[in-house]
Amino acid sequence: MRVSVPSIPDALLRAAAASSSPPTSLTAATARIARFLAPGNVAVVTGAGVSVDSGIRAYRGAKGRYLNPNYKPIFYHELMDASPKGAAFRRRYWLRSYLGYPPVRDALPNTTHYALAALQYASVVPKLITQNVDGLHHKALAHVWDEPRSERGILELHGRLRAVRCVHGHLTDRDTFQQYLSAANPQWKAFADELEATGQQPRTNPDGDVVLEGVQYDDFTVPDCPECHAEHRVNNIVRPTDYHPSSQAPLTLRALAQHKPEVIFFGESITKDVRDRSFHDIESCDRLFLVGTTLATFSAFSDTGADDHAARLLKHALDWRKPVLLLNVGPSRADALPGVEKIEVASGAVMRDVVRTVLGTSSLRDPVIADMLQWGIVKPPPEDENEIAPRAVG
């Protein structure tokens, strides 16, 4: 299987760089987006750009280039490889994720998250589909919607970092799994504590992975699943020749212990249930609003037909003749598509005013909506963190 990285065509990047069209004013952008949303029954698709004001870096900058062009994710086939090489990839992933998860876990919803939450609460946006795995859309609605209601209204297309599943399907809360990792790796726990105390957190990518250089991963232990242990099951990916019930090879088995976060890795396909639900959400809406996405994210994209699904959702909306509006800073894969209207303004600069315009006086009378329009942080990553950093070899 050949796996490719979705990207923005160079022709679009060159066209964007050469464009001399005047920028859209915030007033004009607000009015246009409000007119688009006002009829209601709008499906929203969000990408990494929505979470930037929460301190979570996007993959691409305003010019459409990768902020860290040398960064490459661990591929699904690497993570699932039933060999010592695969075990090394898993150690590398879990060490970097162990250090990178806390900033994502502790991130707070920003003004765009709360603005979209207000539109969902007001039933203007019945369905929201997000490519992000940070859970911030759920956090923005947690005080008014319970978890089942949030699950019905928000589809996490690429999964969620806040849960981990073992090879036999046992689900563990990620905070609990972090405690397992800490207990199994006291030396790395001390290192993580030192990073927190000194404020020297490594550069964190949107998937919770961090940039580490000159680090050896051999001493990092991925703990076994307690439920598998209680059931006397082997929580590993092993070759038939590597394991036999009568075998005595605990070190080998621990080296191959396998857990996977509930996220879609690059080269992995989304599930049929998620795919079907996402298409249904597009079909049942009257229009589609894309926010903070270049439609060129790291996700399933291979010769098996598991193309980047957000781009497929856009195509599906166009096939169904749905009006489409894209709010994004910088080039995207949708820029050359007929039927897609684009506004190049940061969502955080306009979405609060958009909600006030769409909802009118109810944005003041309804205390829930009024609160949502006051909440939200604006704390983007410092620009000096956008340096080019090499991939650490695992």
Rank of each mutant, 00 (worst) to 15 (best):
M1A: 13
V5C: 05
L12M: 10
S19L: 03
S21Y: 01
P22Q: 07
P23E: 07
A34P: 01
R35F: 04
P39S: 05
A48P: 04
S51V: 01
D53P: 06
Y59E: 04
Y59V: 06
R60A: 04
G61Y: 03
R65A: 09
P73Y: 01
Y76R: 00
L79V: 06
D81T: 03
K85F: 12
Y93P: 04
R96V: 01
P102Y: 09
D106K: 10
L108S: 10
L116K: 07
L128F: 01
G135R: 00
H138E: 02
L141P: 09
R149Y: 02
I154C: 09
I154T: 07
F177V: 10
Y180H: 08
Y180G: 00
P186F: 05
Q187R: 15
A190W: 00
T204W: 01
E231D: 13
E231T: 06
T252H: 09
R254Y: 02
A255D: 11
L256R: 13
E262Q: 12
G267F: 02
I282T: 06
L290R: 10
T293Q: 07
F298Q: 09
G305I: 00
H309L: 09
L318F: 08
R321N: 15
K322E: 11
L326C: 11
N328F: 12
G330E: 06
A334E: 04
L337G: 12
P338I: 09
P338C: 10
K342W: 04
K342E: 07
I343D: 15
E344F: 07
V345P: 13
A346C: 11
A346Y: 05
G348H: 14
R356C: 06
S363A: 15
S363G: 05
P367L: 05
I369D: 02
Q374L: 08
G376Y: 04
I377A: 11
